[in-house]
Design a protein around this nucleic acid. Structure first.
Length: 642
RNA sequence: GCCGCUGUAGCUCAGUGGUAGAGCGCGUCAUUGGUAAUGACGAGGCCGGAAGUUCAAUUCUUCCCAGCGGCACCA
């Protein structure tokens, strides 16, 4: 061979060069349009800078702004431009890291004074200048030790620390744009001008620990969002606004569902409307649990600390437990229900014939969560779990898991969640139990989750110390993930609390304990529901299902009569007898997200009918009163009762 | 818990070193109307809590509490 290099394009066409060639050259050879649009080049499945020389025969693909891969690179570049702008404006800062993230990017800076919102505008303007300068972005390599010295020499100690952590002898890639040099894996755009001046926006400032460790100092993080086009940016900002309107904290106040106050931070006060939703869900779950062979129990709120010491909770979680003194004893408000459930199991003697024994409780728990973690109904200090513990033998784990997943999916679907993220968390480094037991537990859980056909991701090392677990995650309006359901295999607690059953061999055996919840907590689940439905609850959950109102006060008696009949049928109905115009009342009840409005005017009184208007529709339908009530009554049934 | 921001009427928010204002909501009265705002009048506030500076603090300072955005945490 004479040093020729053959590049194969995605369409199968081939270009041959007599020596090393860069992505830019290739793009330019194909056409000036492509040369302009090119961002990076895919070489052998790897993204490379356009300026990097290709020295071997390779399959290649030129990536333009239209490709999805481009967005990530664009955002990463935005982070670099942000860092360059900040360093120009505030010479005292040290740069650390700045990756692209979902919807945008951030960069962490070390600086004594924090950035303010006003700083963001200034920085944004400087970023626009840097983009307009259209600085070339060049890649270079440096020996690790040289790179450490280089950054130390610049006073960039964080960068030096990062590089020092990279294995010795490895080449380090550096990127330079203007006077700004950063350690970076790349690839990057050919120049800063490839990012549109109106396609990005700095969003917020926040604190973040160096290397994500709370023992380290706190850095100043600036978040931004970046897109290919101005239109995309705008669409994203609109999406954020829409999401904010769904915020359960806002809707909870507007719809009078619950409130919080200083004297009980993180502990919701449920109002009649919110509590109605809660009760409907509880009744629904109770029916499901009966269907799936659970027995409901109830255990004390306050339990002597001794039990928590036996269970091991006091040791590991005492900082999260509320305690109180009485009778010279220390009691703790239960942070979870499991030890109490073992107490129920331990009363009397259990035969292997009784297994699996499924004990369920709507268990009210209290946990002293760090103040910064509190978040509306999503993260609270007092909550109720739809908790249950299944006591079974080891060979029953798999079957129980399959049944549980079926129950969980059935329930999630009834609430309208068809997409659930599932995480499989396996053995952590600090764990109890032998590897042999862990092997069996993980295998059982894995085969069970595979049977369900659910997609899941691995969450290595994140299992509980007592066993592997499945986490079922739902997403809120703002895109934040919240764990709701869980299924955990536990070999440890039965041991600690000395649970046993009598086997077919007439000997004592240790049961396995399966901790499981579907909603997780009623509070969090309702918070997610509010956002999922944007406050427009389906009929079976709506606090007020119907409002009956007249056109004039002439119909008041009829309205009262309709209201009474519907109440007698168990429908959650309210009447509106105010002397307001019909327009006003329609508007108000629509804003209140009442699913159905019955209007009765003179005609309806004569005909014994009602005119029906449903939320989200302007259509009206006049129906015979009895028919209307029957229909509504049927529609109001929970999904499992239809 | 950590960094930053915020805290004024039931809600959303304006405002000032001389103890406060709007809109919505609420109450009263008038209005009796056919599917997203009828009008008039009125009542509501220890300006988150404590201390300090000042003749004077809702306004400035400090501490505390709570909320918000992140980070860490989430058994």
């Amino acid at each position: 061979m004479n040093g020729d290099i053959t590049l194969t394009l995605p369409d199968g066409s081939v270009r041959t060069y007599s020596g090393p060639v860069t992505g830019s050259q290739l793009a330019a050879d194909i056409g000036p349009g492509l040369a302009k649009a090119a961002i990076v080049i895919m070489v052998n499945g790897e993204l490379w800078d356009l300026s990097r020389e290709i020295t071997k025969d390779s399959p290649v693909a030129i990536i333009t702004g239209r490709d999805d891969a481009a967005l990530d690179i664009l955002r990463h570049d935005a982070a670099h431009i942000l860092a360059e702008a900040v360093q120009e404006l505030y010479p005292d800062v040290q740069v650390t890291i700045g990756p692209s993230i979902e919807n945008g990017f951030y960069y962490d800076f070390a600086r004594k004074e924090p950035f303010t919102i006003d700083d963001l505008e200034v920085i944004e303007r400087r970023m626009v200048e840097i983009i307009e300068r259209d600085e070339a972005i060049s890649r270079s390599e440096m020996d690790r030790d040289a790179a450490v010295k280089f950054f130390q020499g610049m006073g960039e100690n964080y960068k030096a620390e990062l590089i020092a952590a990279i294995p010795e002898g490895q080449a380090i890639t550096l990127y330079r744009q203007g006077d700004f040099i950063d350690l970076c894996r790349g690839p990057h755009l050919p120049s800063t001008g490839k990012l549109g001046t109106d396609c990005f926006k700095l969003m917020k400032v926040a604190g973040a620990y160096w290397r994500g460790d709370s023992n380290n100092e706190m850095l100043q993080r600036i978040y931004g969002t970046a897109w290919r086009t101005k239109k995309e940016l705008k669409a994203y900002l609109v999406r954020l606004e829409e999401a904010e309107k769904r915020d359960h904290r806002k809707l909870g106040r507007q719809m009078k569902l619950f409130h919080f106050q200083e004297e009980a931070a993180g502990m919701p006060f449920w109002h009649p409307h919110g509590w109605t939703i809660y009760q409907q869900i509880e009744a629904y779950i109770r029916r499901k649990q009966q269907k799936y062979g659970y027995q409901e129990i109830n255990t004390p709120q306050l339990v002597d600390r001794i039990l928590w010491e036996k269970s091991g909770h006091a040791d590991k979680f005492h900082q999260h437990m509320y305690t109180t003194q009485s009778d010279n004893r220390t009691f703790a408000l239960k942070p979870m229900n499991c030890p109490c459930h073992v107490q129920v199991f331990n009363q009397g003697t259990v035969s292997y014939r009784d297994l699996p024994l499924r004990l369920a409780e709507f268990g009210s728990c209290h946990r002293y969560e760090p103040s910064g973690a509190l978040h509306g109904l999503m993260r609270v200090r007092s909550f109720t779990q739809d908790d249950a513990h299944i006591f079974c033998s080891e060979d029953q784990i798999s079957g129980e898991c399959v049944d549980f997943c079926q129950m969980l999916l059935e329930i999630y679907r009834d609430f309208g969640f068809n997409e659930v993220k599932v995480k499989f968390s396996d053995r952590p480094t600090a764990r109890a139990g032998s590897d042999d037991v862990w092997d069996r537990a993980e295998a059982a859980l894995k085969s069970a989750i595979d049977t369900t056909g659910l997609d899941y991701s691995l969450n290595p090392g994140e299992g509980a110390f007592y066993g592997p677990k499945l986490e079922f995650v739902l997403t809120d309006a703002i895109g934040r993930d919240w764990q709701c359901g869980t299924f955990q295999v536990d070999f440890i607690l039965p041991e600690r609390l000395d649970a046993h059953y009598i086997g077919a061999d007439n000997h004592k055996h240790r049961p396995v304990m399966l901790h499981r919840a579907i909603l997780g907590s009623f509070e969090r689940f309702i918070g997610i529901l509010i956002e999922e439905y944007a406050g427009r609850f389906p009929l079976w959950l709506a606090p007020t299902q119907v409002v009956v109102t007249g056109i004039t006060s002439e119909q008041d008696d009829y309205v009262r009569q309709v209201h009474q009949q519907m109440t007698a049928q168990g429908i959650r109905v309210e009447m509106d007898l105010r002397s307001e115009k019909i327009n006003y009342k329609i508007r108000e009840h629509s804003h209140a997200k009442t699913p159905v409005i019955y209007v009765a005017g003179a005609r309806e009184v004569v005909d014994t009918t009602v005119t029906i208007r449903r939320l989200g529709s302007k259509k009206q339908q006049t129906l015979d009163l009895i028919t209307a009530i029957d229909q509504l009554k049927h529609e109001s049934l929970a999904p499992d009762q239809r």
